[in-house]
């Protein structure tokens, strides 16, 4: 497989602390795989193993058909990473940043020079070409980092929380860029912004405590949860709802996650009650909460039915 294939991948520290537990992933050679999860869920550990920066304790992983554990040098030919908290180097211009990275990748001097200018132009950054990066805005710096790895001809790009700290406009601009790029590249993206994963990803992997607790497209995740719709009641009073419906407190009101038919029935009931409510397809935030919570409950052997 020329995409990503991960089988029973685990990483432990001191033989006791699990950073990853039996992670399995299959992803094709193009598109965006987004890994979401709480802080410490294992996202960065997974991405660092795939990017050959960290050795796993057990299991196998291949990227672009190359075993990243056994053949890291070959894997590094086809991949590039913008690590979490990576920064442009303040004493270098945007062009110097991209150019020097291309030299690290072994491009000849003149080709690296041409590619650097071309890549910055492709990303609409030509006016910053000769500007010192310490003078650039946070969003532009991030785009320069993306231009840096894109110039390299790597076909697998790892972006570890690329939009953290960006203002909403810069973030949207970067989304548009990534949306275009996913047709040509395999992009692995970790993020804390669930709307980002929902907007960009072809496949979303939800991580919790080092495990992938759910993986698939938004539709697949909704199907797997068996809950395609979210009904939110904006009222302090608990609504009268059909029996067997799980209700959870939500932002000063209540929320029901359910299937299409029940959502319709509940909406009808709420209309009769003249309650203030909204019915929408289940969002990634709802699904993330559902799967992560379920995993936590399994770990602690609590059912948590009172919450749902």
């Amino acid at each position: 497989m020329n995409g990503i294939e991960v089988r029973n991948l685990s990483k432990t520290y001191d033989g006791r602390t699990y950073a990853l537990r039996n992670v399995n992933i299959m992803f094709p050679e193009r598109g965006i795989l987004s890994i979401i999860g709480r802080n410490g869920a294992g996202k960065t550990t997974l991405i660092r193993i795939l990017a050959t920066e960290l050795m796993p304790t057990s299991g196998s992983a291949s990227v672009g058909g190359i075993d990243v554990v056994a053949k890291p040098a070959a894997a590094r030919e086809i991949m590039a990473i913008v690590p979490q908290e990576a920064r442009t180097i303040p004493w270098m211009t945007a062009r110097q940043q991209v150019f020097s990275y291309l030299l690290y990748r072994g491009f000849p001097y003149s080709e690296a020079k041409e590619r650097a200018v071309k890549s910055l132009k492709q990303l609409g950054l030509q006016k910053y070409t000769n500007k010192l990066s310490r003078l650039l805005s946070g969003g532009t710096k991030r785009k320069v980092m993306v231009a840096t790895v894109l110039a390299s001809e790597a076909r697998v790009i790892f972006l570890d929380e690329p939009t953290t700290g960006l203002d909403p406009i810069s973030r949207r601009e970067l989304w548009q860029l990534l949306n275009k790029l996913k047709k040509e590249y395999l992009i692995v993206l970790t993020t804390h912004y669930l709307e980002e994963a929902e907007y960009l990803a072809d496949t979303i992997a939800i991580m919790e405590s080092g495990r992938i607790v759910a993986m698939g497209s938004m539709d697949e995740l909704r199907k797997r949860a068996g809950q395609q719709y979210s009904v939110r009641v904006m009222d302090e009073r608990r609504p009268k709802l059909p029996k067997g419906v799980r209700v959870v407190r939500f932002d000063g009101g209540y929320q029901v996650l359910t299937d299409r038919e029940r959502a319709f029935a509940i909406s009808n009931a709420l209309m009769h009650e003249k309650a203030r409510f909204s019915t929408n397809p289940v969002s990634l935030e709802d699904l993330f909460y559902y799967f992560a919570k379920r995993s936590i409950n399994e770990d602690t052997e609590e059912q948590g039915d009172d919450e749902w």
Binding site: A74, Q96, F107, E153
Partner: peptide
């Protein structure tokens, strides 16, 4: 890019530029 011949000199030059030349220039 997999079969591209890499230049070790380019890779060494990269560090020289990043850590010395650009720092002194800028």
């Amino acid at each position: 890019m997999v079969n591209r011949k890499r230049s070790v000199w380019s890779q060494i030059l990269a560090s020289v530029l990043v850590n010395a030349v650009y720092a002194m220039e800028n």
